[in-house]
Each structure stands twice: as C-alpha cells, then as structure tokens.
Deep mutational scan, measured.
Amino acid sequence: SEEEIREAFRVFDKDGNGYISAADLRHVMTNLGEKLTDEEVDEMIREADIDGDGQVNYEDFVQMMTA
C-alpha cells in the first residue's frame, strides 16, 4: 500500500531530508545485517535513482518498490 511504501521510505531516509543517500542506505542495510561494499551501495543507488541526481527521492523509491 502507499502508506507502507511511505513508511519504508521514512526508515531509509535517516536524516528526514526527503532523499535516501548512499549513507542512509548503507546504514539501513548494515542494521539488517547486510555487509555491503561501497561499490555495492553505490550500484543500488544508481539503479534506484531514476532522475539521475545521485540520491533516491520519494518518487524514485515508489517506482523501485512497485516495479
């Protein structure tokens, strides 16, 4: 549901600035027990970053979650 997606976005957007940065993503993945290299984190950001601004905004996140 849209509310679940919004809630998930809030979990990833640690600093609440409306964007998921590589640092935000790394933090959440580490908490989930996933040890990722910087390259892996950057690749995840690139794949999710639809508009190419280097971070994942809510619209990018929705597209990723509903793809």
Rank of each mutant, 00 (worst) to 15 (best):
S1G: 07
S1T: 13
S1K: 12
S1V: 08
E2N: 09
E2Q: 10
E2R: 07
E2F: 13
E2M: 12
E3F: 09
E3N: 11
E3V: 09
E3Y: 08
E3C: 13
E4P: 03
E4N: 07
E4T: 10
E4M: 12
E4A: 11
E4V: 09
E4S: 08
I5Y: 09
I5V: 07
I5K: 02
I5D: 00
I5L: 11
I5A: 03
I5T: 02
I5F: 07
R6L: 13
R6C: 06
R6W: 06
R6F: 05
R6E: 03
R6D: 02
E7L: 07
E7Y: 03
E7M: 07
E7A: 11
E7T: 05
E7I: 04
E7N: 08
E7K: 10
E7S: 07
A8C: 05
A8G: 04
A8T: 03
A8R: 10
A8Y: 06
A8K: 07
F9S: 02
F9E: 00
F9P: 00
F9Y: 01
F9W: 04
F9C: 11
F9K: 01
F9T: 01
F9I: 04
F9A: 03
F9Q: 00
R10M: 10
R10Y: 03
R10N: 07
R10G: 06
R10L: 08
R10D: 04
V11R: 13
V11Y: 08
V11T: 09
V11C: 08
F12I: 04
F12G: 01
F12V: 04
F12R: 03
F12K: 03
F12H: 06
F12D: 00
F12E: 01
D13M: 01
D13V: 01
D13L: 02
D13T: 01
D13E: 02
K14C: 06
K14R: 10
K14A: 08
K14P: 13
K14F: 14
K14V: 10
K14S: 09
K14D: 07
D15N: 13
D15L: 10
D15I: 06
D15W: 06
D15V: 07
D15S: 08
D15R: 03
G16I: 02
G16Q: 07
G16W: 03
G16D: 06
N17W: 07
N17P: 00
N17T: 12
N17S: 10
N17Q: 05
N17K: 09
G18D: 01
G18Y: 02
G18P: 00
G18F: 02
Y19K: 14
Y19G: 01
Y19T: 08
Y19Q: 08
Y19N: 03
I20H: 00
I20E: 00
I20L: 03
I20V: 05
S21L: 07
S21C: 06
S21G: 04
S21M: 06
S21I: 03
A22Q: 09
A22N: 07
A22Y: 10
A23D: 14
A23R: 09
A23V: 12
A23Q: 14
A23M: 08
A23S: 06
A23T: 11
A23K: 11
A23E: 13
A23N: 11
D24H: 07
D24Y: 03
D24T: 04
D24M: 05
D24V: 04
D24Q: 06
D24W: 03
D24F: 03
D24K: 03
L25V: 10
L25F: 11
L25W: 03
L25K: 00
L25T: 02
L25C: 03
L25H: 00
L25I: 12
L25R: 00
L25M: 05
L25P: 00
R26M: 03
R26A: 05
R26P: 02
R26G: 03
R26E: 02
H27R: 12
H27E: 10
H27C: 06
H27W: 13
H27M: 12
H27G: 05
H27V: 11
H27Y: 13
H27N: 11
V28T: 03
V28Y: 02
V28L: 06
V28C: 02
V28S: 02
V28G: 03
V28D: 00
V28F: 02
M29Q: 01
M29L: 15
M29Y: 03
M29I: 14
M29H: 01
T30S: 14
T30Q: 12
T30A: 14
T30K: 14
N31F: 12
N31Y: 14
N31A: 12
N31M: 15
N31K: 14
N31S: 13
N31W: 13
N31V: 13
L32S: 03
L32C: 04
L32F: 10
L32K: 03
L32W: 09
L32M: 08
L32P: 00
L32R: 03
L32I: 09
L32V: 05
L32H: 04
G33M: 12
G33I: 11
G33S: 11
G33W: 15
G33K: 12
G33C: 15
E34T: 15
E34K: 15
E34D: 12
E34Y: 15
K35Q: 09
K35G: 12
K35M: 13
K35E: 09
K35H: 14
K35D: 09
K35R: 13
L36Q: 03
L36V: 08
L36E: 02
L36W: 14
L36M: 11
L36K: 06
L36S: 03
L36I: 09
T37P: 06
T37N: 05
T37I: 04
T37F: 05
T37S: 12
T37C: 06
D38F: 07
D38W: 11
D38I: 12
D38K: 14
D38E: 12
D38N: 10
E39R: 12
E39G: 07
E39Y: 11
E39Q: 10
E39T: 10
E40R: 12
E40H: 07
E40D: 09
E40W: 12
E40S: 06
E40A: 12
E40C: 14
V41E: 02
V41A: 04
V41P: 01
V41H: 04
V41I: 11
V41S: 02
V41Q: 03
V41D: 01
V41R: 04
D42E: 14
D42Q: 11
D42Y: 09
D42M: 12
D42P: 01
D42L: 12
D42C: 07
E43G: 11
E43K: 15
E43Y: 15
E43P: 02
E43D: 11
E43S: 14
E43C: 14
E43A: 15
E43R: 15
E43H: 15
E43I: 14
M44F: 07
M44Y: 06
M44G: 01
M44H: 04
M44E: 01
M44N: 01
M44A: 04
I45T: 04
I45W: 06
I45D: 00
I45M: 13
I45L: 13
I45Y: 05
I45G: 01
I45S: 02
R46Y: 07
R46G: 08
R46W: 06
R46E: 06
E47Y: 15
E47M: 15
E47R: 15
E47W: 15
E47G: 15
E47T: 14
A48C: 14
A48P: 01
A48L: 15
A48M: 13
A48R: 10
A48T: 06
D49F: 09
D49R: 15
D49G: 15
D49H: 14
I50M: 12
I50Y: 07
I50K: 14
I50D: 04
I50C: 06
I50E: 05
D51M: 11
D51W: 10
D51K: 12
D51F: 09
G52S: 13
G52F: 10
G52T: 10
G52M: 09
G52Y: 10
D53N: 13
D53W: 10
D53V: 09
D53M: 13
D53L: 12
D53K: 12
D53I: 11
G54P: 02
G54A: 05
G54T: 05
G54S: 05
G54N: 06
Q55E: 06
Q55H: 10
Q55W: 12
Q55F: 13
Q55G: 05
Q55C: 09
Q55K: 13
V56C: 03
V56Q: 00
V56S: 01
V56K: 00
V56D: 00
V56W: 03
V56E: 00
N57W: 15
N57V: 06
N57A: 13
N57H: 13
N57K: 14
N57P: 10
N57I: 05
N57F: 14
Y58C: 01
Y58I: 15
Y58T: 02
Y58S: 01
Y58A: 02
E59S: 06
E59R: 05
E59N: 12
E59L: 09
E59K: 06
E59F: 08
D60T: 14
D60I: 15
D60S: 15
D60G: 12
D60E: 12
D60Y: 15
D60N: 14
D60H: 15
F61P: 00
F61H: 01
F61W: 07
F61K: 00
F61C: 02
V62R: 04
V62L: 15
V62M: 10
Q63V: 07
Q63E: 06
Q63T: 09
Q63A: 08
Q63K: 15
M64K: 14
M64F: 09
M64H: 13
M64D: 03
M64S: 06
M64Q: 09
M64I: 09
M64W: 09
M64E: 04
M64L: 11
M64G: 04
M65V: 07
M65H: 04
M65F: 06
M65Y: 04
M65R: 03
M65G: 02
T66Q: 09
T66W: 03
A67T: 14
A67P: 06
A67F: 02
A67R: 14
